[in-house]
Computed example of a mutant assay.
Amino acid sequence: MSNALLLTRQPADNQRLARQLEALGIGCESLPLLELVPVDETGAQRRLMLELDRYQAVIVVSRLAAKLGLDRLDQYWPQTPVGIDWLAVGPGSAEPLQNIGLPVQLPIDGQDSEALLRLPLWQSHFARADLKVLIWRGLGGREHLADQIRAAGGQVDYLELYERRSPAGLPVALTAVAARGVKGIVVLSSQALEYWHAAAGIDWQRQRDWRCWVPSARVAAQAADLGCHDVVICEGADDAAIIEAVQAHPLKD
């Protein structure tokens, strides 16, 4: 497939996005750069969920974090505790919460930590002396978000629900899709970018010339540091934002 766009999220996400892009005449390849593996619950994590009503805000940073966190919520709380602001970074992470009727707030001017922190509710939260925030996430990530909340005097705890791994056989699979004519790649996290760079190996000097769509200025800067020079920043990481960016900056024949 000549001039294909490589999608690198989880298989179901890639398939959904590929259908939409291919309907627009954009050829796609699929290769997840991350393997997401749920982690076993620890005693400390159990206490966080049992004490959920201590928090004024719960932030969900990914669709998988939302799904796994809701499984824990259902286990420990037959009725969701009141008085919590439920926040999501973007539409994908918000959807599982909305599906069970939780009143989720999410930014409308971006899908990153900075946009989330611009929500008006933080004005009153940061005025509290006892602000407590729980972040549902994978192992590691979103430190900037927690740092800003702590700098304002808040307490931040993490409910870490899954870990990210480099998929087995990624270098071989990447070589195979590259040989089929890939000219662009969608990379939606810093860790995915790192795994792409590592898996490319000696072919990195060529792959870094691919047009690279990323979700934020922070990931764009990291891509530039690795030598990528054709980087497009999407206005978020959801399907609509990616499609809009790909149409605005199409691959050249």
Results as ranks from 00 to 15, higher is better:
1 M>D: 13
2 S>F: 06
7 L>G: 11
8 T>K: 15
10 Q>P: 01
13 D>C: 02
17 L>S: 11
19 R>F: 10
26 I>F: 10
29 E>R: 14
32 P>F: 00
33 L>H: 09
34 L>S: 04
34 L>V: 12
37 V>W: 06
45 Q>K: 14
45 Q>G: 15
46 R>P: 10
47 R>C: 03
52 L>R: 12
52 L>N: 09
55 Y>H: 02
60 V>T: 13
64 L>Q: 14
65 A>D: 06
67 K>V: 13
71 D>C: 11
71 D>V: 07
72 R>K: 07
73 L>D: 04
75 Q>M: 13
75 Q>V: 12
77 W>M: 08
77 W>I: 05
84 I>P: 01
85 D>E: 02
91 P>E: 01
95 E>G: 04
95 E>K: 14
96 P>N: 06
96 P>Y: 02
98 Q>P: 09
100 I>Q: 09
103 P>C: 10
105 Q>C: 11
107 P>K: 05
107 P>W: 04
116 L>P: 04
117 L>G: 05
118 R>K: 08
121 L>H: 07
122 W>T: 13
124 S>H: 14
124 S>G: 09
128 R>S: 15
129 A>L: 14
129 A>P: 13
130 D>T: 11
134 L>D: 09
136 W>T: 01
142 R>D: 01
146 A>Y: 06
150 R>Y: 00
150 R>S: 08
151 A>D: 12
154 G>E: 09
155 Q>I: 13
158 Y>R: 03
161 L>N: 02
162 Y>G: 10
163 E>W: 06
167 P>C: 11
174 L>H: 06
174 L>S: 10
175 T>K: 10
176 A>Y: 05
180 R>M: 07
184 G>I: 08
185 I>F: 04
185 I>N: 02
186 V>I: 14
186 V>D: 08
187 V>Y: 14
187 V>F: 13
187 V>T: 10
189 S>V: 01
200 A>L: 09
207 Q>F: 10
208 R>T: 09
210 W>P: 00
214 V>N: 11
215 P>L: 04
215 P>G: 12
218 R>P: 00
219 V>N: 01
221 A>T: 00
222 Q>R: 01
223 A>H: 08
223 A>K: 03
225 D>F: 02
231 V>G: 12
232 V>D: 03
236 G>R: 01
237 A>H: 05
238 D>A: 01
244 E>D: 15
244 E>W: 09
248 A>V: 12
252 K>I: 12
253 D>K: 06
